[in-house]
Every structure is written in structure tokens, then in C-alpha cells.
């Protein structure tokens, strides 16, 4: 994977993804390895995302890399009017690796074609956020011991949620059964369902979260935003159908885990946090190991 870009999860083959998860597991056991001490990592956040930036920077720091960059284009030295191309070319001179987040879709792919160093996409508008997808895969494998033959429920805003699109597509490599729970207005888009069909896998659609609780191995929760509804009455009507609380978990599989890309608002009641099923905080922590693995592999510090 040396010198590869990661813009979209499909840039890595199934084998590469699995290898990366193995390396991430090594970092989980031994996170402080100063194997990038001679490297400079640039984190270019053209829009703020504190959570993602801190995760990348923590990962880079624990590897001994030095970090340059900015956390918000509006108060950085990136002057208004400078093209993305010029910024990327300039930063290419100063860093061995670029991690970037940008509000426009396609910006990361474009940057990777302009840059002289590898680029990791930390989110390009509503398009891709592949490290989120990798940490989700990591969390599923870690909690279930495998990625194959699992019943995975996706819950909430499945129409606009890019994380669920990428994750569902990535899981198509692993013989899973998909359960899509959402209000009718926010159903999984047809291109994702088509990918599932193309892999000869099954999906089922629901409007009530309680329907999938008895058999799900993973419940992947996402937020349903009021702004997504043309009719506010409709939002009021459906908003509770995708909210999870402790009482609903009676009868779920003992090994079931609840994931969420965070931040959560109210879709997971706080009384779930102390149950053995809550995994969303560990999931976020796993992101550091996955990003350590990714940066080490791309920079050739791990094979």
C-alpha cells in the first residue's frame, strides 16, 4: 500500500482492507511506535471537523510524526481565491503525506491527482469518508470476531448518510445480510441496494427499529435530521421510530453491538451507554489505530 492514495473505500481491495485491519490490531496492542519520526504529515481541514482532525493528529503524534496544517480554511494562511491546486502543490513541498477534509465533493480525488505526495481523504463533502468506513469494519470485526455472515442493521437517515452507503458497500465483500431501517422518506438509495444485489446478497427494509433487534449482530445507528423533511409534521410523526433506548434491547442477541459514527444527538438514549451493547465510544477510539495503520502503510513504515 506504499504511496497509495485513499480517497474512496473502493481504492483498497478486500485483501488490502483486511491487511490494514490486521496492522490496526497491532497498534491497538502497542500504540506508541515512533516509526514515523522522520515524517511530516499535513492535516488540511478546509472545513472544521474537530473529531476527525484530532483522531488523525493523535494517530500521527503517537507515531512520532510532525504535523503541519490548518483546522479551518477561513482563519488559515490559505488565502481566499487561491485554488485548491495551488494549495495542494504548495503543501506537497512541505509534507510526506496529506490528510484533507474539504466541503466540495470530488476535491480529494482531484487533490490526489495534483499532489506529489499521497493523499488521505478525511471527508469530501457528502461523498466519501473512507477512514470512517475502515474503523467501522475494524469495530465490527473486533466485536464479532469476523466480517462474514453477519446480520447488519442500518438505522436512521439512510438516504443522505454517506457513512452508511460506504459501509454497506464495503460489507458487500463479506457475505452479510443487510437490514435497512428508516422512515420512508430516508430509505437507502437504489444504487446501494443494487450493489447488494450485484453481490447476490440479501437486504430487507423496515420502518420500525424494534423489528430488527431480536436478530441483529450489529445495529449501526445514524441521526435523523429535521432539515431532511419537507414536511415538519412528517418529521414529528416518524422521529421516534429510529430512536433506541435500553428497554427496547430486551431479547437482543447477547453479542450484539451498537455502533454510531458520532456525534449523537438523541437517537441513542443515554441509558444505553452503560449496557454491554454500547460500543460507539470504543468505535471512535478504534479510529486512532486504523489511522495509525493507514499512515504507516502508506508511508512504508509497515509492510
Amino acid at each position: 500500500m506504499k504511496n497509495k492514495n485513499l480517497i474512496s473505500i473502493t481504492d483498497f481491495s478486500k485483501e488490502e482492507q483486511l491487511h490494514l485491519l490486521d496492522v490496526a490490531e497491532e497498534f491497538a496492542k502497542n500504540p506508541r511506535q515512533r516509526i514515523l519520526a522522520d515524517k511530516v504529515v499535513a492535516t488540511l481541514f478546509f472545513e472544521p471537523s474537530t473529531r476527525t482532525r484530532l483522531s488523525f493528529e493523535s494517530a500521527a503524534n503517537q507515531l512520532g510524526a510532525r504535523i503541519i496544517g490548518f483546522s479551518d480554511a477561513s482563519n488559515s494562511s490559505v488565502t481566499k481565491g487561491e485554488t485548491l491546486k495551488d494549495t495542494i502543490l504548495m503543501v506537497s513541498n512541505y509534507a510526506d503525506l496529506i490528510v484533507m477534509r474539504h466541503p466540495r465533493e470530488g476535491s480529494a480525488r482531484y487533490a490526489s491527482e495534483v499532489a506529489k505526495v499521497p493523499v488521505i481523504n478525511a471527508g469530501d463533502g457528502a461523498n466519501q469518508h473512507p477512514t470512517q468506513c475502515l474503523l467501522d469494519l475494524y469495530s465490527i470485526r473486533k466485536t464479532q470476531g469476523r466480517l462474514d455472515k453477519l446480520d447488519i442493521a442500518f438505522v436512521g437517515d439512510l438516504k443522505y448518510g454517506r457513512t452508511v452507503h460506504s459501509l454497506a458497500q464495503a460489507l458487500c465483500n463479506f457475505d452479510c445480510t443487510f437490514h435497512f431501517v428508516s422512515p420512508a422518506e430516508l430509505k437507502m438509495p437504489s444504487y446501494v441496494k443494487q450493489t447488494v444485489k450485484d453481490h447476490h446478497l440479501e437486504y430487507h427494509q423496515y420502518t420500525e427499529l424494534s423489528d430488527v433487534i431480536p436478530f441483529a449482530d450489529i445495529i449501526y445507528m445514524t441521526r435523523v435530521q429535521r432539515e431532511r423533511f419537507a414536511d415538519p409534521m412528517e418529521y414529528e410523526r416518524v422521529k421516534n421510530s429510529c430512536i433506541l433506548n435500553k428497554a427496547m434491547l430486551k431479547g437482543c442477541k447477547e453479542s450484539m453491538k451498537i455502533l454510531h459514527p458520532l456525534p449523537r444527538v438523541n437517537e441513542i438514549a443515554t441509558d444505553v451507554d452503560n449496557t454491554p451493547y454500547a460500543y460507539y465510544f470504543q468505535q471512535a477510539h478504534n479510529g486512532v489505530f486504523v489511522r495509525q495503520a493507514l499512515m504507516s502503510l502508506i508511508l512504508g513504515a509497515k509492510e
Partner: peptide, 30 residues
């Protein structure tokens, strides 16, 4: 919101064949 509509970039699409012509943007994937 595609980057090609905001910077001077030559657009690039992969043609997806089917009943209807569909072009998948190389950059934003839409």
C-alpha cells in the same frame, strides 16, 4: 457541489451503460 464546478478542472466521467446513458463523475462519484 462538485469540485469541477468550482475550480478550473476538466470534467471526467466513466460511462455506465444500461438502458439509460449514465455518466459517473470521476471526482464526486455522482
Amino acid at each position: 457541489n462538485c469540485i469541477t464546478n468550482h475550480e478550473t478542472i476538466e470534467t471526467n466521467f466513466n460511462v455506465v451503460s444500461g438502458d439509460e446513458v449514465k455518466l459517473k463523475c470521476h471526482f464526486c462519484e455522482k
